[in-house]
């Protein structure tokens, strides 16, 4: 069978589908001071998943606000800097008007994912951290 670390090199999704892969990638991102990008990506997925259980509107609002505050509000943050202004104002609008939608972070998540696919993920595959692990 293919060892997991070889699968990680196939695509970002195969890497993010494996606990050890995530852990190693996060260690690398932390070194590059951009671990927030990965946390934000997972937070968006987790937020979307909340939709399944009804009756937690209050929790959804709280969580949407928390994600907005931590990753988007601060324009100097690593995540905020990678997201398009239009996307940021869309999210801000949703939060301010309490239009909480399961897909409200989708566009921002896609932008961060593209950034990882084009930038940090290829760098990770060439990094000492990954090469030493293999």
């Amino acid at each position: 069978p293919t060892p997991p670390y070889l699968k990680w090199a196939e695509s970002l999704h195969s890497l993010l589908d494996d606990q050890d892969g995530i852990h190693l990638f996060r260690t690398f991102l932390k070194q590059e001071e951009c671990a927030d990008m990965l946390d934000f990506w997972f937070a968006c997925s987790g937020f979307r998943k909340l939709e399944a259980n009804e009756g937690n509107e209050e929790k959804k609002v709280k969580l949407a606000k928390a994600i907005y505050k931590k990753y988007i509000l601060d324009n100097n943050g690593i995540v905020s800097r990678q997201i398009k202004p239009a996307t940021k104002s869309f999210i801000k609008d949703c939060v301010m008007k309490l239009h909480i939608d399961p897909a409200m972070f989708d566009q921002a998540q896609t932008e961060i994912q593209t950034m990882m696919e084009e930038n940090t993920y290829p760098l990770f595959l060439k990094s000492d951290i990954y090469l030493e692990y293999t």
Binding site: L16, D17, D18, Q19, I22, D39, F42, A43, C44, S45, G46, F47, K49, L50, K59, K62, L63, K65, A66, I67, K69, K70
Partner: peptide, 20 residues
């Protein structure tokens, strides 16, 4: 503030794959 962080952490963990 703590509970906001806890909520975020819980959300992030919920999206991660389970141990295989």
């Amino acid at each position: 503030i703590d509970s906001e962080d806890d909520l975020l952490q819980e959300c992030i963990s919920s999206a991660m794959p389970k141990k295989k």
